[in-house]
């Protein structure tokens, strides 16, 4: 079963007088439970591809399928619903809601999903324990380290039990030890929950965790490596 399928995606941005091709006829397929890294230098198109897969950005042409459903032609509301139920996001700068505690940040998404209060509490406790934040549930982001904040972001991303997690430079603000811990957490979640991970990065240490590495340059896929075989 295919988790993500992109067919001939094109996306062009205008920057001043110049047209920049962020995606240039990109086609990929990612299997369910995949663990994929998108690697590219800055401006290579990895974030644009991630945004297109996540329904945050609509490509100029081409088709995007998530769990078999075509999403590039969905309305804004339907895309929001898709992201809420099926896709988890982890961002470079953690992007937690600063006035909510770790637990509340995780529960917030569940509340929007309509999960009952008692269930929310139970699930958030379990998820925060799974990501290694037991005992820190009532701390606000400002009271946590970068690594801990990113773990909260991961917990928030998996709170809705999504089939797909998209992570954009998740280790960019972390030291090497914390980066490794985060990637081990991703690996653990991928193996135990069968969640598909697509990670955009240019960090070589992150790439080594991926089973599949897709290299991009100037909006095109230039390499697609099965790292298990390598």
């Amino acid at each position: 079963m295919t988790a993500v399928r992109c067919v001939d995606l094109c996306k062009t941005y205008c920057q001043g007088d110049q047209d920049i091709k962020a995606l240039d006829h990109v086609s990929i397929e990612i299997a369910e439970s995949g663990f994929v890294c998108l690697s590219a230098p800055s401006g290579g198109g990895k974030t644009t591809l991630l945004n297109a897969i996540g329904g945050l950005d609509i490509p100029d042409s081409g088709e995007v399928y998530v769990a078999g459903q075509r999403i590039d032609n969905l309305s804004k509301g339907a895309l929001a619903e898709l992201r809420l139920r099926q896709i988890g996001f982890v961002f470079q700068a953690y992007n937690l809601i600063p006035v909510l505690t770790a637990r509340e940040n995780v529960e917030f998404v569940m509340q929007v999903q309509g999960v009952a209060a008692a269930d929310r509490h139970e699930k958030s406790t379990a998820i925060l324990k799974e990501v290694g934040l037991e005992g820190l549930e009532d701390r606000r982001p400002a009271e946590m380290s970068g690594g801990q904040q990113q773990r909260v972001a991961v917990a928030r991303a998996i709170a809705s039990k999504p089939s797909l997690v998209l992570a954009d430079e998740p280790t960019a603000n972390l030291d090497s030890k914390t980066s490794d811990e985060l990637m081990e957490l991703f690996t653990h979640l991928n193996e135990h929950h069968k969640t598909t991970f697509v990670i955009a990065t240019h960090d070589r240490r992150v790439m080594k965790y991926a089973r599949r590495l897709i290299r991009m340059l100037d909006g095109r896929i230039v390499d697609d490596i099965d790292q298990r075989a390598a």
């Binding site: 996540g54 929001a80 619903e81 992201r83 809420l84 998404v109 809705s160």
Partner: peptide, 16 residues
């Protein structure tokens, strides 16, 4: 604005 962008990315509809 940035924070609202994040929660919209997480699946919150603008109406909410």
């Amino acid at each position: 604005t940035r924070e609202f962008g994040i929660v919209m990315a997480l699946g919150l509809k603008p109406g909410r």
